[in-house]
Each structure stands twice: as structure tokens, then as C-alpha cells.
Design a protein around this nucleic acid. Structure first.
Length: 389
DNA sequence: TTTATTTGACCATA
DNA sequence: TATGGTCAAATAAA
């Protein structure tokens, strides 16, 4: 990545942060906000185009990848807002590309699909869940409704894949290899989160590799017989990059109580309402009896909390208001109230939440949105009562 | 007490 | 037979 691209990205980030700083005072200045957003977007688009031109040469750029990680980790509420606007406007998220497979302006999008991938970004059609998952950079096999016909179970014995790196396994079909930069902050030993919860079941030294390979399976493997697995290994040539191999599809999302694709970034309340009215979205919004399809923690619980509190103004009253919360990725929680502190694990099973159950839903929402990590998050607390074997 | 992680042993595959 | 992948007991953490 050349210096000009870096400069553009830096400039865009600075502009976004400046905007964020002025947001409290300028929140009502729509024209100013619009202009500012447009300026920021144009800067990132220029950066994106420069990066795309490099990426299309087929070169994985660890520096660009690192910047993507940095962008992700430093994403501000203002950035979320920009992204939300573009998401609902039908256009690509700021900084994302309809064709590229590189930097996407999203907290979760960091990966570079290396093989056996589908054009995650390119699908003009597809379900919302697919689009959202694609925008979030998830491997195609993690997108609900997208069944990989070639996928087999852990020892399914499918046909051999084209992987040249691990020719030993015959069940290579359905595997996807993603490279993601190691977190720049915090514990860099931990592979970046991908929105699902994983349980580590093994670690093994690999021949001719400096770093051991870690083996993970879906946390819900037992309960839902979810065959999804992943292997995580640091690259010998670039210790700051993880190579993550996904195997098997998540089947846990098939259950109404199971985790699914994570929700999209923060969306404004009115945008959510508008989205609700969109026929394409209604497909994903359950009707009268609202089945709660629980998801891993949102990318930014803080932001979600902010959003909930933002919404209180329109909800009226001195009490904490009821909000319509819609998980656009296929889940729905209706009339979930943002209420006080929650207790520990909530004893609900296949949750058909009625409006009358708001207090309980409120606790659940609290548990969901106050959790910080997708692993060991409150959702597991919620599920723990159900996971009794 | 429950759940997650670690790690040595075992098994399957090339 | 070497190697990668998984199991399961031991241990740690919550």
C-alpha cells in the first residue's frame, strides 16, 4: 500500500473523528452532517479504489490488512452511523466494495478469502442475511440459507479440495481459508472474533511451522450437532496474521434458539422502522409470535446500548422505553424493552416472546447488549439453562 | 459446581 | 510410517 493510500485513510479517519467530536453540538444540523459524511465517504472511496487496484493484482497485502484491522478496532460511532446509512441506502458500506475482497469498513470485516470462496460482496441479490453476512466478511458457509452442497461433516469424507496446503485431508470440500490480521490491541494471541462462539478442543505443533495450530469447534456442537469447526494458525511468514480454516456449516442457526449470523452494525431507530417496512426485510422478520433467534453479541454492545438509550426519547415517558429491535440478519426481537440490570441466565427455551413478556425480554436484551465478547458472552449464560444435557 | 482449556494419547489418512 | 485431526482426562477458571 502506498503512502498516498495510507494518507487518505488517515485523513478519512481524522475527519470521522472530528465529526464525532462535533456530533453532540451539530446533531440537528442535517446539512452539515450530510456534507461531512459525504466528504468522509469520498475520502474512503478513493482509498478503497487505490487498494482495490492493488488487490486485483492478486497480492495479499499484510499492511493493508493491518490497516483494516486498525480501522476496525478504532471504528467510532460516527463510522457506524455512516455504515448504517449506506447499508440501508442499498449501497455498499463506506469503504466496502461490490467486487473487492479486501478492506471493508466494518468492525468484523478483516479477512481475505484465500481459496474456495464465493464472491461474498458481489451478490446483488440474495437474502438479507447473506448480504449482511457478506458485508461482515463472514465465510460463505456461515451464511444462513446458503447451504454449501459440498459440505460434509467433520469426517464426512467428501471429495478432495483444491487446497494445496493441506492435501492430507480428503474432506477438504466446504473448507474456506481466511487470513485475518492479529488484533493490534489487547491480547494479540487470540484470533480475531468472527461472531460465532467456539470451543477449543485441541492444539498441535505442525511440521515446519513455528506456531502450533489450534482446533476449535462450535460451542453448540453437542446441543445442535453443529459440525462447524475451524483451525487457527499463525503464519510462519507473518506472525501477525492468522490463517483460519473453516470446516463445516453452522447448523445451530437452524434452531430458533440457536445463534445465528450476528446482527449488522448499529442502525438508527427510524432506519430500522423503515427497514421493517421493506418487503425484502419483512421476509426476515418473524410475524405475530416473535421467535427470538438469538445471536452472538453485537459488534459493539456499547453502541447498541447507546442506541437503546437514544430511542428512549421517542418512546416517551420517564421510564425506560420499549424499543423495536430487529436483528436484520434473520432474527427478530420485537418489543424488547431496555430495562434495568438483568439477572443471571434466563430460563426460557424456544422463546416465543409476546409483548406481555416484556420484562423478561428486557432482561434478555440487557444480557445480550451488555455482553462484550462473542465468546463467553451472555448469550451463553442465557443458553446455559437450555444446554443441560 | 459447571464450563472451558490444556495436553498427551489415539486414530485415520496419505 | 509420518503427520494431522480428534478424544478425553486433568486442570483451571468462573
Amino acid at each position: 500500500m502506498d503512502i498516498e493510500t495510507i494518507t487518505l485513510i488517515t485523513q478519512g479517519c481524522k475527519m470521522a473523528k472530528d465529526l464525532e467530536a462535533t456530533l453532540p453540538n451539530m446533531a440537528t444540523q442535517h446539512e452539515y452532517l450530510l456534507n461531512s459524511c459525504n466528504e468522509i465517504i469520498s475520502v474512503f472511496i478513493r482509498a478503497k479504489e487505490r487498494i482495490n487496484s492493488k488487490a486485483q493484482m492478486g497480492v495479499y497485502d499484510p499492511i493493508a490488512s493491518g490497516v483494516a484491522e486498525w480501522l476496525s478496532s478504532s471504528q467510532t460511532p460516527a463510522m457506524h452511523l455512516l455504515q448504517a446509512q449506506h447499508l440501508l441506502a442499498g449501497g455498499p458500506a463506506p469503504g466496502s466494495s461490490s467486487t473487492s475482497r479486501n478492506i471493508v469498513f466494518d468492525p468484523k470485516v478483516k479477512g481475505v478469502l484465500m481459496q474456495d470462496d464465493q464472491d461474498l460482496e458481489g451478490g446483488a441479490g440474495g437474502t438479507l442475511a447473506e448480504v449482511v453476512a457478506a458485508r461482515r466478511g463472514f465465510p460463505a458457509n456461515m451464511v444462513p440459507e446458503v447451504a454449501d452442497a459440498t459440505t460434509s461433516g467433520p469426517r464426512g469424507g467428501g471429495a478432495s479440495s483444491s487446497s494445496s496446503q493441506r492435501p492430507r485431508r480428503r474432506d477438504g470440500a466446504g473448507t474456506r481459508v481466511v487470513r485475518e490480521p492479529a488484533p493490534q490491541m489487547g491480547n494479540t494471541e487470540i484470533p480475531p472474533e468472527d461472531g460465532f462462539t467456539w470451543r477449543k478442543y485441541g492444539q498441535k505443533a505442525i511440521l515446519h511451522s513455528r506456531f502450533p495450530r489450534s482446533y476449535f469447534r462450535c460451542t453448540h456442537q453437542k446441543l445442535y450437532k453443529c459440525p462447524a469447526k475451524k483451525q487457527v494458525q499463525r503464519l510462519d511468514t507473518d506472525p501477525n496474521t492468522f490463517e483460519i480454516t473453516y470446516r463445516g456449516d453452522h447448523t445451530c442457526h437452524l434452531s430458533s434458539t440457536a445463534p445465528s449470523v450476528p446482527p449488522p452494525p448499529l442502525l438508527l431507530h427510524n432506519q430500522l422502522i423503515a427497514a421493517q417496512q421493506d418487503a425484502t426485510l419483512l421476509h426476515h422478520i418473524s410475524a405475530a409470535t416473535s421467535t427470538v433467534n438469538l445471536t452472538p453479541a453485537p459488534p459493539s454492545s456499547v453502541l447498541m446500548t447507546q442506541w437503546l438509550s437514544m430511542d428512549i426519547g421517542t418512546g416517551g415517558g420517564g421510564q425506560r422505553a420499549t424499543s423495536n429491535i430487529i436483528d436484520l440478519a434473520g432474527a427478530s426481537i420485537t418489543n424488547a424493552a431496555a430495562a434495568g440490570p438483568s439477572g443471571s441466565g434466563l430460563p426460557f427455551g424456544r422463546a416465543h416472546i409476546n409483548v406481555e413478556e416484556q420484562p423478561r425480554v428486557a432482561d434478555m436484551a440487557d444480557a445480550m447488549f451488555n455482553s462484550g465478547s462473542s465468546s463467553n458472552n451472555s448469550m451463553d449464560l442465557i443458553f446455559s439453562s437450555m444446554d443441560n444435557k
